[in-house]
């Protein structure tokens, strides 16, 4: 079992910076660790599979098609296109920092990243395939089959395909954001405006849901708790029911996982329906439907500035 500490150079640099600066801050948001424990061989195999188009029915799309690394692990279109030119029912969520999420998908309807891979392969508007088809194509690639044999005792199986992709995903974390440096005690890592923006983020109550290491991603919340978002938006689709689609409990109608705000400045458009084109619009929607109050244009601008400090760095080896 080979365990690697990704970006150990980054952690050494952090340690150095930490020694030079003040004491770490105790805030509701926690910094992303420099590395997470993963299996290097599986990560390497998963990296191959992440851009593997044979996973889709017509060999047209791979995971990477919708999760672009220069777009914060998401996609700039409102709803991206899958196999056979079909349009997804939801916007692409980011794949970064998924390891810190308490559940997966926009709705938080599944527990593991492996389960997400399983659904993506079979979803008619994404890969529109099945394991028989996928394994049929992959098993003709001798080199790939050999990689699986050397990595997993039972070689190429659906569970191992899902596990390798998931292990690669777990390694995709973005430490070293300016805000994390600030949390670790470097008071000059963010500007005065950004500090004020963070103070407003707490004062208005955004922090009640967007907290913890992933600034969200560790709880559920109803979309439209202070006003009917879906009525205001119109054209309600099945995907808008969120967690209800998994549990069939009325209390879970329009309930979603609170999304992480890590790298949020890079992941436009916003929300599961991609309805907010800019961060300003997204913050406005949150004020109206989740906080039930209004903020001045100045306060909103400061909050958006603060959100910009949450952009981290993907470990070089994984790009």
């Amino acid at each position: 079992m080979f365990r690697i500490a990704l970006a150990s150079g980054v952690s050494a640099a952090l340690l150095h910076a930490g020694l030079a600066a003040g004491a770490p801050l105790d805030e509701p948001i926690k910094p992303i660790p420099a590395s997470v424990p993963v299996d290097a061989a599986k990560v390497a195999l998963g990296k191959l599979l992440f851009s593997e188009k044979r996973l889709s029915k017509d060999d047209s799309v791979s995971c990477q098609s919708c999760h672009l690394f220069d777009q914060g692990g998401a996609h700039p279109s409102k709803r991206p296109t899958g196999a056979g030119g079909a349009v997804h029912v939801v916007n692409s969520p980011t794949v970064f920092n998924a390891v810190f999420g308490f559940k997966q998908l926009w709705s938080g309807g599944v527990d593991s990243i492996e389960a997400v891979v399983e659904r993506v392969v079979k979803a008619p508007r994404v890969f529109a395939s099945n394991w028989g088809q996928v394994l049929g194509k992959l098993s003709q690639d001798g080199a790939l089959v050999a990689r699986f044999k050397s990595t997993y005792a039972d070689g190429l199986t659906p569970a191992n395909v899902a596990n390798a992709i998931a292990e690669y995903n777990r390694a995709l974390i973005t430490p070293n954001a300016r805000f994390d440096k600030y949390l670790r005690g470097d008071a000059s890592a963010i500007s005065a405006d950004e500090k004020n923006g963070y103070a407003l983020f707490k004062k208005y109550g955004c922090i009640a849901c967007h907290q913890g290491v992933n600034v969200g991603g560790n709880m559920y919340q109803t979309f439209g708790v202070m006003g009917d978002y879906f009525k205001a938006r119109g054209d309600v689709q099945e995907a808008d029911l969120g967690l209800y689609n998994f549990t069939k409990k009325d209390a879970d109608r329009h309930t979603f996982k609170v999304p992480s705000l890590r790298n949020v400045a890079q992941t436009a458009p916003y929300f599961h329906d991609g309805s907010a084109a800019t961060l300003d619009e997204a913050v406005d929607v949150m004020f109206r439907f989740q906080l039930g109050r209004q903020a001045s244009a100045k306060d909103r601008e400061l909050i958006v500035k603060f959100l910009g400090t949450l952009t981290g760095e993907l470990p070089q080896a994984l790009k």
Partner: peptide, 16 residues
């Protein structure tokens, strides 16, 4: 999980 969702909303409204 339900407690977490409720607690966040309730604390915000009570504070406001």
């Amino acid at each position: 999980d339900r407690f977490k969702s409720h607690n966040s909303i309730l604390r915000n409204s009570l504070r406001y």
